[in-house]
């Protein structure tokens, strides 16, 4: 069978999806611009990337022409969070950023790509519940503007706390786990019995996470064992992760040092804390924000099972020369 025909068929599916992806990005920008947000373009290359114990930044070297300093190690961001929070501390009120983020060491099985398109936005003085309203309104707005009605969005959106999910799917009291919290045990239960059972046809917000699982989120006022963190699932895919942000510099420093310790203990690279980020936190004031996977939203909109169907070239394809060695 001739190769030309095969290429044409590849192009048919792919080009449709890539066009949809472009319309999604345009529609996201239109929605935020209409709501009075400012798009910011934060740096992709930074000296001190996020230090989450389970995310791996890509490292490279930077050098100034004729510079007398020796080359310096810099990293590609895993999320624009630090830079955006510093802009909020400088006085910006409502900001969003759409751009690629980079994470190394992720599975290339169709759920991740080492370079993915992330939308992140922040607004001062809104609550987690208002952030959920906003997220729902934005996704609906984008679908409406594109005049599509994916089945994953057909039913009314659901909001449940993580404790409610444990009760509903496991008949278990989450509070009994909090005393001597074991993160691995939590994830095993969650990934085996809760996440796969979340409805594919009903977008679901899970919120109020155990405080140990919310490094940059503010503890809940009524119960500091939980934090103001939310995750959004659409069509069974984890789409977004948001917080009512932690603004306490000392508490943030304590959590960062703990994360750094976890990295060290598992033999991972560590680097100094970002002091300019830490000192900006108190100036930022009460804020909520969320990181949102654009590629995954495109998967929902196009009914694609793999991220490789919505990006031009898959990781395996792009890096195939290196892999043959």
């Amino acid at each position: 069978m001739c190769d030309a025909l095969r290429v044409t068929r590849f192009a048919f599916m792919k080009l449709k999806n890539i066009q949809t992806r472009s319309e999604v990005v345009t529609s996201i920008r239109a929605w935020f611009d209409a709501k009075g947000f400012t798009e910011v373009h934060t740096p992709r290359l930074v000296g001190l990337p996020g230090q989450e114990p389970h995310l791996e930044p890509f490292w490279m070297e930077v050098q100034e022409q004729g510079g007398t300093q020796k080359t310096q190690n810099v990293a590609l961001i895993t999320s624009p969070e630090y830079a955006m929070k510093r802009l909020l501390a400088e006085g910006m009120e409502k900001i969003y950023d759409v751009g690629p983020c980079f994470r190394n060491g992720e599975p290339w099985d169709g759920s991740h790509d080492p370079e993915f398109l992330m939308l992140e936005w922040y607004q001062k003085s809104i609550s987690l519940s208002e952030l959920m309203d906003q997220t729902e309104e934005m996704v609906r707005g984008v679908a409406e503007r594109m005049r599509i009605a994916p089945s994953a969005l057909s039913r009314s959106w659901r909001r449940m706390t993580v404790a409610e999910a444990f009760r509903e799917y496991l008949d278990m009291d989450l509070e009994s786990m909090l005393e001597d919290f074991d993160e691995d045990e939590f994830f095993k239960l969650f990934l085996t019995h809760i996440e796969p059972k979340l409805s594919k046809n009903q977008p679901t917000f899970l919120y109020r996470y155990p405080v140990q699982l919310a490094s940059l989120a503010k503890p809940c006022d009524d119960d500091p064992r939980f934090a103001e963190r939310v995750e959004l699932y659409i069509g069974g895919l984890e789409i977004a992760n948001g917080f009512e942000e932690l603004t306490d510099e000392d508490e943030q420093r304590r959590r960062f040092l703990e994360e750094q310790k976890t990295r060290k203990e598992s033999g991972k690279k560590t680097w100094p804390l970002d002091e300019s980020f830490l000192s900006a936190l108190p100036k930022m004031g009460p804020t909520a924000g969320i990181a949102f996977g654009v590629d995954r939203l495109v998967m929902v909109f196009t009914g694609s099972k793999s991220i490789n169907d919505v990006i031009p070239f898959s990781a395996r394809e792009r890096f195939s020369n290196e892999m043959k060695d």
Partner: peptide, 14 residues
């Protein structure tokens, strides 16, 4: 089977 990296947690295989 499915590989899962929750980001805020370690890597798992379901």
């Amino acid at each position: 089977f499915q590989h899962i990296n929750p980001g805020k947690g370690a890597a798992f295989v379901r």
